[in-house]
Nucleic acid binder design. Structure first.
Lengths: 181, 181
DNA sequence: TCTACCATGTAATCTGTTACATGATTGC
DNA sequence: GCAATCATGTAACAGATTACATGGTAGA
């Protein structure tokens, strides 16, 4: 999304690949920018005059071919306007596992438990990664650090819920073999 | 999404408007189906033979004009296949407030606090609604109830985080007037 | 040399969103 | 009678996803 790009260029001049990598690595749970999306977005931002190319590294210098982008004054103004807006929509969680979970009553319990265990494994790994990365945020980056803390809380809460769900479903299985709720 | 429609038709034969309403009301935080999306989806499901129209209420009978859909055997089979699949993607939270929050360091603190307070008001109201609706889920609908519990946990956790963020930012304001983190 | 990754880009397709249009019904 | 809501639908647009294509660089 274009405002994320404008936001990140406040911090540093970057090229497309790095912008995407940065967003994905640090805030991937809040949004994800697609590799096939970042270059068209950069192009349209240049066309609108909100960002500009400050340099193109061709192989005269060493390092790969890439374009370095910077934010313009118009870009900063547009970003400030956006930042002040009250968001019109509330939080939505997109998760292909949860859409299945709702309908687990129409499937078989063994398969449900298998999928739940897969999710637990994924989020336990993610939790380790997130705990390890929290101290990296300095006092300078107060807001990104708070977002990282939110990610950690979400991760912890979700894991607890998954484990409660697993216990409840496993218990249900032994009580009423074959039956589904 | 088509599998949500197939899932919900396991529970009951419904018409388009009710399908959307049901999804929106009970699981709106996990997905939202757009009003301009449900009818094309129903049409393509009929074309694929996964659902079928069981009746059209024209104004011979009382009540408004509407089409009642049911799931076919092919639809059940396709749904079962989907339900067994391991989801390829992990959870993503979409929230226009959080995308702004990350960049609050580049805006002014007064505005940030204003937006945070708006969010707190929204989610406090939502929390009351969710607490009130939890007991409605019977033992029969175990999985939807667990989803509702997840919604409640998420809501509670998010509110706590918003309030911690507010305190931290408000404190920061009085310590270092004009400065931003 | 070969693999993995860095880096940019396009095309086709699928979803999602907004806005509109129509008309019936229900309750005040 | 009027407003709100029920109900179905379309059109235009915006955003996301997948797949592909190209070529450079770094390190085993």
């Amino acid at each position: 999304m274009k405002y994320s790009v404008l936001g990140i260029l406040h911090y540093k001049d970057l090229h497309g690949y790095r912008i995407r990598e940065h967003l994905e690595r640090h805030f991937g749970f809040v949004w994800s920018i697609n590799p096939g999306q970042i270059y068209p977005v950069l192009k349209s931002l240049v066309d609108e005059g909100l960002i500009a190319i400050v340099g193109i590294n061709q192989n005269e210098n060493k390092g790969p071919y890439r374009k370095l982008y910077t934010i313009t004054e118009a870009g900063r103004a547009e970003f400030q306007r956006w930042l002040k807006e009250s968001p019109k929509k509330t939080m939505v969680v997109r998760d292909p596992f949860l859409t299945r979970f709702i309908f687990f009553g129409y499937g078989d319990i063994e398969n449900s438990l298998k999928l739940i265990n897969e999710q637990i494994a994924i989020y336990e790994e993610q939790l380790i990664y997130r705990k390890a990365n929290l101290p990296r945020w300095s006092k300078q980056s107060q807001y990104p650090r708070m977002i990282a803390e939110l990610g950690l809380s979400l991760n912890t809460m979700y894991l607890e819920w998954l484990k409660r769900a697993r216990e409840e479903i496993a218990g249900h299985k032994s009580e009423l073999p074959g039956a589904q709720g």
